Computed example of a mutant assay.
Amino acid sequence: MRRRGVACVVAGAALIGFTGGDGFAGGHAKTWADGTPVVWTDQEMPELPLERYEFDGTDKQAYDRMERARQLLTQRCMVRHGFADFPRDPKYPGFGNRYTTVMVAVGTGPVGSYDLEKARRWGYGWDPGKKVRPREPEGREMTTEESAVYYGDRRGEQSGCAGEASRRLERGVRDRRNTWVYVSGRATAVRKQAGRDPRLRRAYREWADCVVDKGFKRYPDPVKAFGDKAWGRGQDGNTRRTERELGTAAADVECKRAHNTGGVWWSVVNRLQRAELTLHRKEFAAVRVDRDRMLANVRAVLETA
């Protein structure tokens, strides 16, 4: 979860000691007088209401615990089928012959990054000297015979030992699909709705005017700036880091700080998400019950490890 950044309300002023660029003379206000949080760094973006209902790959601790429980259950199932030395974290058949791409994933949120130093140096890309190799399974590669038992008939996720593990972890869950996709689906709908909100549209225009005033191209929003094909992003996700790209990326961050684009975005989405929770209270409550039940199943399995 992101660290909360709302701390105090400053009446009559949007920012304290704002000097432009990356200056922090006297620091900056934590909120506007109307309660809108002031966001100058990635860490200052507050949590949104729907995040408390999510359970997906973004919740790394919970997701990792679920994977450990799944591996344990699958291994036990394989042992029962006669594969006594089956590893807990196996490689898939043919894994050793695959070419593993080494890269750093590049992504951006609805308003992009606030890291001005990186923007000035790497633009909308990343340091090519800091490559990260994706995590590889620790165990040996499973055999073709083991794979047939592991996956079963492959006609569904509930087949084979992998399917048995899933059924155990989802025991008591009433709506399996909604547990994984309902919250993210509603969050996506809210983001689309936010894009039509007059206040956010005005904030994006102010940000765009600021970028243009600094001598760069007009974009409808920060995400479009990040995704400009002119940056020549390659298959590894990195950009060419031209002078224009570096300047645009720096102006992007400076203008988001100057006009609190991220804080306005959060304020609009926060209001819409709260309305969403009120409108679909029963559905969200049911998702949370199923999520908590699944996490309880995970805890029970890991306690037997």
Score class of each variant (00 low, 15 high):
Gly152Asn: 11
Glu157Tyr: 12
Ser159Trp: 02
Cys161Glu: 03
Gly163Lys: 02
Gly163Phe: 04
Glu164Cys: 00
Ala165Leu: 08
Ser166Met: 09
Leu169Lys: 08
Arg171Lys: 06
Arg171Gln: 00
Val173Trp: 05
Arg176Cys: 05
Arg176Met: 08
Arg177Ile: 02
Asn178Lys: 15
Asn178Ile: 07
Ser184Phe: 06
Gly185Ile: 00
Lys192Tyr: 10
Gln193Val: 04
Gln193Ser: 15
Ala194Tyr: 05
Gly195Leu: 01
Asp197His: 15
Pro198Cys: 05
Pro198Tyr: 11
Arg199Gly: 06
Arg201Ile: 12
Tyr204Gly: 10
Trp207Met: 08
Ala208Tyr: 02
Val212Ala: 12
Val212Phe: 07
Asp213Asn: 04
Lys214Asp: 05
Gly215His: 07
Phe216Gln: 01
Lys217Asp: 11
Lys217Gly: 03
Pro220Trp: 03
Asp221Tyr: 09
Asp221Ser: 10
Lys224Glu: 15
Ala225Met: 15
Asp228Gly: 06
Asp228His: 12
Lys229Arg: 11
Gln235Thr: 11
Asn238Gln: 04
Asn238Phe: 07
Arg240Gly: 10
Thr242Val: 10
Arg244Asp: 12
Leu246Val: 06
Thr248Asp: 06
Thr248Phe: 06
Ala250Met: 05
Ala251Cys: 07
Asp252Gly: 09
Asp252Ser: 12
Glu254Arg: 06
Cys255Gly: 02
Cys255Asp: 04
Lys256Met: 11
